[in-house]
Design a protein around this nucleic acid. Structure first.
Ligand SMILES: [Mn+2]
Ligand SMILES: [Mn+2]
Ligand SMILES: [Mn+2]
Ligand SMILES: [Mn+2]
Lengths: 220, 220
DNA sequence: AATTAAATTTAGACAAATCTAAAATTAAAA
DNA sequence: TTTTAATTTTAGATTTGTCTAAATTTAATT
């Protein structure tokens, strides 16, 4: 099956949202796609027609198995291209998302699998997100949000949940990137902001909003 | 300037046709793009509106400088991606065209230039066609059609003018590919077919139609 | 030169994807 | 439990790119 770029974008966004929330709402999807709720409703009808999602008017929606499979293939393409751009073409990790947003819609399955092999079957993209394999299998890693990390416990940045360029710019400014080892040296209950220490650097302060979107795992 | 995939396809096809014919006709373009003359007329109006071509109704058309520049950028992308697919992803030269037909519409200029550098600034694509550089400069090579090659003169295949998969399949069957050294051992005036010899192989016969589309250059 | 044929353009339609404004439904507040 | 507010859907339009069928213009034949 081959879907339009717009359909693929919708499938992917629904997949991400339902991973966080179970059921997805029209407004949430419209916000994620920077489009209008009315446009989302239009697309939902088409996706339901094609039996890619479960949907009844006014009651929210979610992907069925077929829809998930399709979404995962798009995610696979997106992340493999991001990996290619960073590792082979020397792009920065904060400038590949938009380009991958276009490349992910190239349809050749053979191309994706060859690219995968060429890259040595990587299992995480430049932002630390897992890359599904050819059969759509994920290796899901146990990672927590930086805001849940206990005080003074060393951890390693493993993924960035919100990948807007504004977010990435802020992190880069604070010398935080994939693989950075850090710990929380202080918590401020007033606004839930955190003071974070990175080895041999002055500490930096992160808002709760930022911390929530930085995912970490135990340091080895 | 960024143009739609359809506009880019039209620009590229017009460029190729006017290279051969000077002025381009509606029917020729429709045939090249596998579309209808009426659709071509519609698009011509838009391209003229955007000042990419010279066009007056019923009188044919051709790209202006702006249009040529745009077309060359598309050709550059197409051929760089073809080179990538063959040299890095191990595709055969006869299976890359369709995929490149999609990849050529990815818009990032930076991506193309990085890809170019990654590939080592190649100057011909897998079919022997020259790859324009970042400024749109071509290195045009003096090549002639196999049908114009004198009898018994050794030459080397440098490009294939018609790159349909049917054509490429036929050539592959006859062991003719880019770089193949050959000579014409006999000409048959009745139908302008040719007997062609490739070193250490039994001679093969090619129709005039095939020979016209095989381009050769002097053997070093 | 008149007629026929070919090429090209116009007129009108359609599908996909999006939008705004208004209506319908559901959720929250008084 | 009314009333108000938020969410979601519908109705109707718009843009882009395409098509068929008919009309127009140009080219080729008799
Ligand atoms: Mn996308
Ligand atoms: Mn990513
Ligand atoms: Mn194309
Ligand atoms: Mn080529």
């Amino acid at each position: 099956m081959k879907y339009s770029a717009s359909k693929e974008n919708h499938l992917k966004a629904i997949f991400h949202l339902q991973h966080e929330q179970g059921i997805v709402t029209t407004n949430a999807l419209a916000a994620a796609l920077q489009t209008r709720p009315a446009s989302v409703t239009d697309m939902l009808k088409k996706l339901k027609e094609q039996k890619l999602l479960l949907y009844e008017r006014y009651k929210g929606f979610r992907l069925n198995n077929e829809g998930k499979k399709a979404a995962i293939q798009v995610i696979r393409k997106h992340r493999l291209w991001e990996y290619f751009l960073v590792k082979k073409l020397q792009f920065g990790w904060d400038e590949v998302h938009e380009i991958a947003e276009e490349l992910e819609h190239i349809s050749s399955k053979k191309l994706v699998d060859r690219l995968d092999a060429f890259l040595g079957f990587p299992d995480t993209d430049p932002h630390g997100d897992p890359i599904p394999d050819s059969q759509g299998r994920f290796l899901q890693r146990r990672q927590i949000s930086l805001s849940e990390l206990p005080l003074n416990k060393l951890a390693q940045v493993s993924a960035i949940a919100s990948q807007t360029s504004e977010m990435l710019e802020l992190l880069q400014y604070n010398h935080i990137q994939l693989g950075t080892r850090l710990l929380i040296s202080r918590k401020f209950p007033f606004d839930n902001s955190l003071e974070v220490k990175i080895r041999s650097r002055p500490p930096v302060t992160l808002s709760a909003q930022v911390a929530k979107n930085v995912l970490v795992k135990d340091d080895e």
